[in-house]
Simulated assay, not measured.
Amino acid sequence: MTDDDRDRIERELTLLVRRTQRIHVRLPGVARHVERAAYAILGRLHDDGPMRLTALATLFGLDVSTVSRQVQSLQAEGLISRSADPGDRRAALIQITEHGTEVLRGMRAARRELLRDLTDSWPARDRERFADLLERFNEGVAEKLGGAPDSLPQKGLVRD
Score class of each variant (00 low, 15 high):
24 H>S: 11
103 V>T: 14
75 Q>H: 10
25 V>K: 00
93 L>I: 04
157 L>G: 07
82 R>Q: 15
119 T>V: 05
137 F>Y: 14
19 R>M: 09
35 E>V: 03
12 E>Q: 10
74 L>C: 03
106 G>W: 01
22 R>F: 03
58 T>G: 07
160 D>K: 08
39 Y>F: 14
135 E>N: 10
84 A>L: 11
154 Q>D: 15
16 L>E: 03
56 L>H: 01
142 A>D: 15
97 T>F: 07
157 L>R: 15
107 M>Q: 14
18 R>V: 08
95 Q>T: 13
74 L>Y: 04
109 A>I: 01
20 T>K: 04
32 R>P: 01
46 H>R: 15
91 A>S: 12
38 A>S: 13
122 W>M: 06
149 P>H: 04
44 R>Q: 11
30 V>L: 12
18 R>F: 07
55 A>V: 11
48 D>F: 11
125 R>A: 13
103 V>F: 00
75 Q>M: 13
111 R>H: 11
104 L>I: 00
65 S>W: 01
105 R>G: 11
8 R>H: 08
81 S>N: 08
113 E>G: 13
38 A>C: 02
105 R>H: 12
76 A>M: 06
88 D>L: 02
12 E>R: 12
6 R>V: 12
107 M>E: 13
109 A>R: 14
160 D>A: 12
66 T>W: 00
106 G>F: 01
111 R>P: 00
19 R>V: 05
28 P>W: 03
70 Q>K: 12
7 D>I: 02
71 V>G: 01
94 I>K: 01
61 G>A: 02
129 R>I: 02
52 R>W: 03
91 A>M: 10
76 A>C: 02
14 T>E: 10
132 D>I: 07
58 T>Q: 11
78 G>Y: 04
158 V>K: 10
15 L>R: 15
57 A>Y: 01
114 L>A: 12
160 D>G: 12
148 A>D: 15
142 A>P: 02
72 Q>F: 10
131 A>D: 08
5 D>I: 10
97 T>R: 04
127 R>F: 00
70 Q>H: 15
86 P>F: 00
77 E>L: 12
152 L>R: 15
88 D>K: 05
56 L>E: 07
140 G>Y: 03
39 Y>I: 06
62 L>W: 09
157 L>I: 00
35 E>I: 01
31 A>C: 03
40 A>V: 10
